[in-house]
Amino acid sequence: MFQAIYYKFVESPILLRIFGIAVFFIVSFGTAVHFIEPDTFPTIFEGIWWAVVTASTVGFGDFAPKTTAGRLLGIGLIFAGAGFLSAYFINLAAAAVTSQNALREGKAAYENKNHLIIVGWNERTKEIIDHLQTFSISRHIVLIDDSLRTNPYSEKIVHFIQGIPHRDEILQKANLKNAASALITSDPNKNEMYADMNSILTLVAMKGSSPSLYCIVEILTNDQVINAERAGADEVIQTNKHASAVMLNSIHQEGASTALTHLLDPLNGGLLKTMAPEPDWVHMSFGELAINLLKERVILMGIQRAENTMINPPLAVQILSSDRLLVIKH
C-alpha cells in the first residue's frame, strides 16, 4: 500500500509534489511545536498557523517559541519549509509562463468543442477571421498553420496550432473530433497543383479522423475538384473560377466587381444563404414567392434543384419541397 502511494506521488506533477511536501512540513512542525510548548501554542491549529507564517517568511510575531527545542524546530522549519514553499511559487510562475508561451507559439492543445478549424494563414484567412469577429455570435476559431511561429491574434479570439495540418498529432491538438466545421484554404506560396494536392491530403486526414465533420476546401485547379469531392469535401470553393467569373462580368459591365463585392459582403447586409422552403411555399411560383419574401427584406435569387442551380429562373417555375432556395438576407 505504501509503495503504491509512493509511486503515485512520484508520478504526480512536480507542482503537486512540491506543494505536498511543503504542507507535510508545515503540518508536522506545527503539530510538533504544540507538544513541545503547549503553553505558547495551546492548540494544534495555532501551531500550524505559526508554521505557515514562519515557512512563508512573513513573521507576524503573534506566536513565537520560547524554549530552545522550540526555537531549533523553528530553524529547521525555516530551512526546510521555506525552501519548499519558495520552490513551489517559483515553479508555479514558471508553469504559467510556459503555458502562455505554449499558447502563443502554437504548442498547446485545444480542449473546447463546436469550434471552427481554419487551415492556412493568408490574406483570405485574415479577412474571414476579422469578419467573423463582427458577428453577434462568433464561434471560436482554431488556426492551423506551418509557416507561422506565433499567434497573429489574441488567444481569446484564435487558438493557434503550429504544424503540418495533415498530421494526426496536429489534428488531435485541434480537437478535430469535437469541431463543428473546417475550412481548408490553399497555400499561396505553392504552385496551384501542389497547393491543391496539399489541400486534398489535409481533407483526407480530416475526414479519416472525423467522417461527419463538415469540410469546406479551397481548390485552385479544375482538374482537382473531382478529387476533392471524392475525398469527401462537403463544399468545394473554386477560387480561380469565381475570380474569373467576376472578371468576366467586369469586362462586359464596368463596375460589376464592385457591385458583386458589396452584394456578398456580410458587413453590408448581404449574407448569401440557402434555405429549405416552408410547407406553405411548396407549389408556389418563383415570382409569387419572390414578392412575398421581399416583404420580409429577403431577396430570392434562385433555386438549387438536385445538381442544378437556377439563377433568376422563369417566374412561373414552381417551388418543390426538395428545393433549396438561394436568398440574400440579414
Rank of each mutant, 00 (worst) to 15 (best):
Asn175Thr: 02
Pro279Tyr: 01
Asn222Cys: 02
Lys207His: 03
Asn240Trp: 08
Val246Leu: 13
Asn175Ala: 06
Lys273Tyr: 06
Asp234Lys: 08
Phe160Arg: 00
Ala174Ser: 04
Met197Lys: 10
Leu171His: 07
Asp280Cys: 05
Ile161Gly: 05
Arg305Thr: 08
Val282Gln: 04
His262Ile: 11
Ala205Cys: 04
Pro277Ile: 04
Arg167Val: 09
Arg305Asn: 07
Thr239Ala: 14
Asn198His: 14
Gly269Met: 09
Ile161Asp: 00
Leu213Trp: 00
Leu213Gly: 01
Leu183Thr: 10
Asp265Cys: 12
Leu263His: 06
Tyr194Pro: 00
Met275Tyr: 08
Asn175Phe: 05
Ser181Asp: 10
Leu176Val: 15
Ile184Gly: 05
Asn227Trp: 12
Ala174Trp: 00
Ile299Asp: 14
Ile291Phe: 09
Met301Tyr: 15
Leu220Arg: 06
Leu220Trp: 01
Asp265Thr: 06
Thr274Asn: 04
Ala245Trp: 05
Val246Ile: 15
Ala290Gly: 08
Ala233Thr: 02
Ala228Thr: 02
Ile251Lys: 03
Gln162Arg: 15
Leu220Glu: 04
Leu293Glu: 07
Leu272Ala: 07
Asp168Thr: 15
Glu229Gly: 11
Gln238Arg: 15
Ile184Asn: 06
Glu229Ala: 08
Ile219Phe: 01
Leu300Asp: 10
Ser181Val: 02
Asp223Ile: 09
Ala228Leu: 01
Pro211Ile: 08
Gly208His: 00
Asp234Gly: 05
Gly269Tyr: 06
His262Asp: 14
Met247Ile: 15
Ile170Glu: 04
Ser209Tyr: 05
Ile299His: 10
Ala231Tyr: 00
Ala245Lys: 12
Ile161Cys: 04
Ile170Ala: 03
Ala243Val: 13
Ile161Trp: 05
Tyr214Cys: 09
Ala233Cys: 06
Leu171Cys: 00
Ala228Ser: 05
Ala182Glu: 04
Glu229Ser: 11
Met275Pro: 01
Lys241Phe: 09
Ala233Gln: 07
Ala182Trp: 02
Ser212Gly: 11
Lys273Ala: 14
Leu271His: 12
Ile164Ala: 03
Pro211Leu: 09
Ser285Lys: 08
Ile299Asn: 13
Leu267Ala: 11
Leu267His: 07
Ala195Ser: 12
His242Tyr: 14
Ala233Asp: 02
Arg305Ala: 06
Leu264Ala: 12
Thr202Gln: 03
Leu171Ser: 04
Leu263Ser: 14
Ile164Asp: 07
Ala306Arg: 15
Leu248His: 09
Pro266Met: 11
Asn268Tyr: 09
Ile226Arg: 14
Asn249Tyr: 04
Val282Leu: 09
Glu254Asn: 14
Leu176Ile: 13
Leu183Met: 12
Gly269Lys: 06
Gln238Asp: 05
Ser199Pro: 10
